[in-house]
Amino acid sequence: SISSRVKSKRIQLGLNQAELAQKVGTTQQSIEQLENGKTKRPRFLPELASALGVSVDWLLN
């Protein structure tokens, strides 16, 4: 799922939720909701993929 991929990649990069949120241009709460499965397809998906160094396709599939 996107939530597990985001969380595992974030941890692999040594980032906390607030640091990832800053790179993406969103809030820590938005990252938390995404990782908890409350958000399925965030509006900041391209920025998120870029910050994590992955493709949008990788996040979604």
Rank of each mutant, 00 (worst) to 15 (best):
S1D: 13
S1P: 09
I2N: 02
I2P: 04
I2Q: 03
S4I: 12
S4Y: 11
S4C: 13
S4V: 12
R5S: 04
V6P: 02
V6R: 03
S8E: 12
S8C: 15
S8T: 11
K9H: 05
K9V: 10
K9Q: 09
R10M: 04
R10G: 00
Q12K: 09
G14N: 07
L15Y: 10
L15G: 01
N16L: 07
N16K: 09
N16T: 15
A18I: 10
L20E: 02
L20K: 01
A21Q: 01
A21G: 05
A21I: 01
Q22R: 13
Q22D: 11
V24C: 13
V24G: 02
V24K: 00
V24T: 09
G25D: 04
G25E: 04
G25S: 05
G25K: 06
T26E: 07
Q28I: 15
Q28H: 09
Q28W: 11
Q28T: 14
Q28G: 06
S30P: 02
S30R: 12
S30D: 14
I31M: 04
E32K: 12
E32Y: 09
E32T: 08
E32R: 12
E32F: 10
L34C: 04
L34H: 01
L34R: 05
L34K: 02
N36R: 11
G37M: 06
G37I: 03
K38F: 15
K38R: 12
T39E: 11
K40D: 12
K40Q: 13
R41Q: 11
P42I: 15
R43E: 12
R43V: 12
F44P: 01
F44N: 07
F44A: 03
F44G: 04
F44S: 03
L45H: 01
P46C: 13
P46W: 13
E47L: 10
E47A: 14
L48R: 00
L48H: 00
L48W: 01
S50C: 10
L52E: 00
G53D: 08
G53T: 04
V54T: 08
V54M: 06
V54I: 06
S55H: 08
V56S: 06
V56F: 08
V56W: 07
V56P: 08
D57C: 13
W58Y: 08
W58A: 03
W58D: 04
L59S: 00
N61G: 15
